[in-house]
């Protein structure tokens, strides 16, 4: 049985990896994957907490985050596809041009 402390350590590492990915990778797809990892770290935390404190609140939050993550992925990927069609690239470096 994995203790709650160990689980939080794992999720923290996961989250740190995700943040590193978000900050360092310029590729759009890698960026989305990193964001998903961050969300999954949060979901793991919620589920673990739900088990530890015997409350369904955390589990239901986890479900909601899953749904939101799916929607967010759909939106970002559709935007990336459109962007790729226009510019032939999915790198975030060239996205600077959109600034106001």
């Amino acid at each position: 049985m994995i203790s709650y402390q160990n689980l939080t350590i794992v999720t923290s590492i996961l989250f740190a990896v995700a943040v590193y990915g978000i900050l360092s990778r310029r590729n759009g797809v890698t960026f989305i994957i990193s964001a998903e990892i961050a969300l999954n770290a949060a979901i793991l935390n919620f589920v673990g907490g739900s088990d530890e404190f015997s409350s369904l609140g955390g589990a239901s939050y986890a479900l909601m985050i899953l749904v939101i993550a799916v929607i967010e992925t759909v939106v970002i990927i559709s935007m990336l596809i459109t962007y790729y069609k226009r510019t032939g690239s999915i790198s975030f470096s060239s996205l600077k041009d959109l600034k106001g």
């Binding site: 978000i22 900050l23 975030f92 470096s93 600077k96």
Partner: peptide, 14 residues
């Protein structure tokens, strides 16, 4: 810091 780069924004936010 407002250079339009998403990743700069995120790092500043973090």
């Amino acid at each position: 810091i407002e250079d339009g780069d998403v990743q700069t924004y995120i790092s500043v936010m973090l």
